[in-house]
């Protein structure tokens, strides 16, 4: 399958996708502090099981070690990082500067996001920047790469290899506009898409049908988002408090039923919940793989990173393809 191709970057994820493999990306949440050891450990644990590892950018508007530093630490342990950039915290000067620095440090993958509103985080009175929106951020990165120009039109010196990604939420409203919005992101330059967590497969399948009708699956690589659920409480929390994540009540009930098998024993309940969570994730992975146009999965197992190797192996996605 491998062939000599012109790649946009040195990204492993790009090569895996371009060569037609089913891709797997993961996620590492940086610490609320300076310790790099946790990132190194997660990177070392996950690098063999994924093609890229996202490092979140002040996720849910909570201050953490910056994505650029987290990505750099991941590089040190041989993982291929994916730098998330939100529009909430930085203006066009800061973002373009960070991108130059990231490319200089060998980071190839970027994900362009609006960012959760600052209201949700630990600095709710911060001024939201939103100088650019996520679609404009994609267009900015593409211009920096393809035209080697900043937004202002001035030239960038040096190479700009970048594999540019964006997010999509098939469950947000208005549903009919979601595919148009995806098309805008693809037109702006999104090489790949990582979706919000998929639980309602039927709705996602309808979304993908509209995606295929517009031919977008031929122009970008869509990775379906998987958030492994560890406990019914976590599912309930996501349903109620995490913006943009649609968790069906049936999933919460299923987790609860499994946990109840453990009776009053907390440990037993947690163990049953964990096993059910793994089963649910594996079912979801299997079902999204059947949907035409889905080119991979993006597993977001924040604070449960050790489950990623289990899922990838049990889903038959290990070993990961070796690409050059």
């Amino acid at each position: 399958m491998a062939q000599s191709q012109q790649f946009k970057s040195n990204s492993k994820l790009e090569k895996v996708l371009t060569q037609g493999h089913f891709a797997v990306s993961g996620e590492v949440g940086p610490p609320k502090g300076t310790g790099a050891e946790g990132i190194r450990e997660k990177g070392a644990m996950l690098k063999e099981y994924t093609d890229a590892l996202n490092v979140t950018d002040n996720q849910t508007a909570i201050v953490r070690m910056c994505s650029l530093a987290g990505c750099t630490v991941l590089k040190q342990v041989g993982a291929d990082p994916l730098m998330q950039i939100v529009c909430r915290d930085r203006n066009r000067l800061a973002i373009q500067a960070d991108v130059l620095g990231a490319v200089a440090l060998g980071i190839n993958n970027f994900l362009c996001l609006s960012g959760d509103h600052q209201k949700f985080g630990n600095h709710p009175n911060a001024k939201g920047v939103y100088d650019l929106d996520s679609t404009q951020l994609i267009a900015t990165l593409r211009q920096m790469r393809d035209e080697k120009k900043f937004i202002c039109g001035e030239d960038i010196s040096g190479d700009m290899p970048m594999f540019i990604g964006a997010a999509a939420n098939p469950y947000a409203d208005p549903f009919e506009f979601r595919v148009t919005r995806l098309a805008k992101k693809v037109n702006a330059g999104a090489d790949f898409i990582q979706t919000q967590a998929i639980y309602d497969i039927d709705k996602f399948a309808r979304y993908m049908e509209l995606v295929r009708d517009m031919g977008l699956d031929k122009r970008t690589h869509i990775l379906a988002g998987i958030i492994p659920v560890r406990a019914s409480g976590m599912a309930r929390y996501m349903k109620n408090f995490v913006p943009g994540v649609a968790v069906p009540q049936s999933l919460i009930d299923r987790m609860k039923t499994a946990e109840d098998k453990g009776g009053e024993d907390k440990k037993q309940r947690a163990e049953y919940g964990r096993e059910e969570g793994i089963s649910i994730s594996l079912e979801l992975i299997e079902r999204v793989r059947q949907i035409p146009g889905v080119h991979g999965i993006h597993i977001m197992a924040v604070n449960w990173e050790e489950i990623v190797p289990v899922l990838v192996e049990r889903a038959g996605l290990y070993p990961r393809p070796q690409v050059l």
Partner: peptide, 17 residues
């Protein structure tokens, strides 16, 4: 979020995240 290219992923049943 002063977005100019359509609703973010937090738009739900007509209300803001």
């Amino acid at each position: 979020k002063r977005l100019l290219n359509g609703p973010c992923g937090g738009s739900e049943e007509g209300h803001c995240e």
